[in-house]
Design a protein around this nucleic acid. Structure first.
Lengths: 359, 359
DNA sequence: TTGTAGGCGTTATCAT
DNA sequence: ATGATAACGCCTACAA
């Protein structure tokens, strides 16, 4: 915590680590307040069980010394941490940031602290993070999506850590989750697209390995196509790419190189779609006149861009808040084991129009 | 980790929370592997100091039992946590998300875990978070800006926790920091604006209380105006607002209601500017023909919007990475006590043009 | 109401 | 190379 070598102050090595000695402990407080450590502990944890007079005295000393309980010791002795953990793929994606903010706010209301880790979409890394959070005594965990290593689930099960899978609701998955049905949602949007007469579809997907949301969204498009008598293998052109406006732009350009061109480019998320849109402008392609574009998530940029993006609105904050409540209930032993499906809503804005040549 | 009241399990109600009994400890592993706890500990921490044969045996048992060291106990005994903490105002702001991601990546490379908390721009809340992170044994802290309670600094000092103030470089502040000079940067941009002939300036600022970055940016505009012989009190119209595209739009509308209108609306950040821009379009005001608009930060939307936003580019990722390195060095005792000023760059794009009526 | 003392799971210092 | 064992800081029966 401090320099070991730097302070080569000649003689009486003036204890190069003079700070640690100064971290006050419960005992320091107790001694200085003239009470036992038990009393100090009570002042901090169950103030009502100590007479107001001594409590005041103790709290004063606590202030003076700037005492803060050692979390490790406390966890060790009390066997609970009032800490929840969350592992998200990345903080750079606004949809997680927003949901997490709500998650944290709800937890804060209940006196519990949130630890956040991000896995960079790597199941192995996520496994390590889960392990780390468990080791840190996380009372419960928020996870994104169902895709993870078998060991991750084994870890969770063995310790019987309450957890909830968020951002996804898959009726076929038995795990407790809160979110929406990505496949169904995208299918709904695709149905709208097909209703506009589009038959050649380009799809810009986020990377699907280790990401069930992305996979489901892709499947949703296929579902809708089949339902309309189309063959995804023939009429759907897929590009998988990383996250980012620039990536969406590149993918769009590639898609436009095909002959014949797709008449609509559906995107796995709004950021990709925003990139596609900007590229269309750059290429002088009219949207939705020549090509329609759709997104997913309905983040702020969806309304900002021009023409405004047709997309699927997802209740991120509600998901975060709901996840917190589920976990809180679970921890309290209330058997809220029912997954919750949140509604999404197709937002028809300006980037989706009829297929060119349609009456 | 367990409910205190709930499980009033009268008789044998199938113990609703039978997990805790099964959490393996070092001792369990030791017993099952037929070695001492010390050896197991060594296998985990200094594997080179234990013969390969026993090590394999031990690790096998570790696997079987799904053992994970108890963090609290470890912190207690080892007196270090390999954990850094970061407190940001909000996760919903992309500039922090991005910097934090880089911060975390750098830390991960060095085997240290990051704990993130957000203060919602409240100094009191931040103080509590600092305390919580210290209690959790954070070895070092990343903080945003200089504005915080006196007690917060007292806390930090008393425990001698290494910390770095990021997103800001204020030559007048002695504290170790990494970032850029918000005031100077905004002054530079404002000078450009003035050079385009603008004389009536509208400024949409983020809320300035508890936010020195916002204050400094505002001051920067004033500096530039004075340098050009203008009086900020007379020629600058200020609106302070919350974060968000919608808020920027509202503020812009309000600014446009003035007579005479400002010929340029400078914004404290890109998100506000994006909102202003969208509102201009909505109101049929030509940008930059009738009104120029500028942002700050150069986040992705700055290039996405049309016309593209003139703004100040800030190296968010470099800040995160640099902060990590500073902290790492500090912890290692390398006396890198020098604040680092990162360069910003004015990005002249399309939303800034000459003042109407200028030759 | 308050104090005493045992124990929580690891690490680290000595021995062996 | 490995094993005992004493901390580490706090909580919580239990006793007073």
């Amino acid at each position: 915590m401090i320099s070991d070598d730097q302070n080569a102050d000649g003689s009486d090595p003036a204890s190069p680590r003079s700070q640690d000695d100064m971290v006050p402990t419960l005992e320091d407080v107790a001694r200085r307040a003239g009470v036992s450590t038990a009393t100090v502990s009570r002042c901090l944890n169950t103030p009502e069980r100590v007479v107001s007079d001594t409590r005041k005295r103790v709290m004063k000393v606590v202030q003076e010394l700037g005492y803060a309980p050692n979390f490790g010791a406390r966890a060790l002795a009390a066997r609970r941490t009032n800490t929840f953990g969350a592992i998200i793929p990345t903080m750079e994606n606004a949809i997680f940031a927003r949901g997490l903010q709500a998650f944290q706010e709800e937890l804060g209301l209940n006196g519990i602290t949130l630890l956040v880790a991000s896995s960079s979409y790597s199941p192995e890394l996520e496994e390590a993070q889960i392990s780390a959070l468990i080791a840190r005594g996380a009372d419960a965990l928020l996870l994104i999506g169902h895709d993870r290593t078998r060991q991750s689930y084994a870890l969770l099960d063995r310790r019987n850590i309450p957890y909830v899978v968020a951002w996804v609701f898959d009726p076929e998955m038995p795990r407790l989750s809160i979110g929406f049905d990505n496949r169904k949602a995208m299918q709904g949007l695709a149905a709208q697209v097909l209703a506009e007469g589009h038959r050649r579809i380009g799809f810009i997907s986020a990377e699907r390995t280790g990401n069930d949301r992305a996979r489901d969204r892709y499947k949703g498009v296929c579902d809708a196509m089949r339902a309309a008598g189309l063959d995804p293998d023939a009429d759907l052109q897929l590009i998988e790419t990383e996250y980012g406006i620039g990536k969406g732009a590149q993918a769009f350009e590639k898609l436009m190189a095909a002959t014949p061109r797709p008449t609509v480019v559906m995107c796995g998320n709004d950021v990709l779609a925003a990139g596609a849109l900007s590229q269309a402008r750059r290429m002088g392609i009219a949207v939705p006149g020549e090509v329609s574009i759709t997104g997913f998530d309905d983040v702020e940029i969806a309304e900002l861009v021009s023409p405004a993006l047709t997309t699927v609105h997802v209740p991120h904050r509600e998901m975060g808040r709901g996840a917190a409540r589920l976990l809180l209930a679970l921890r309290a032993g209330e058997g809220t084991r029912e997954s919750v499906e949140l509604p999404v809503e197709i937002r028809l804005r300006e980037t989706l129009g009829p297929a060119p040549g349609t009456a």
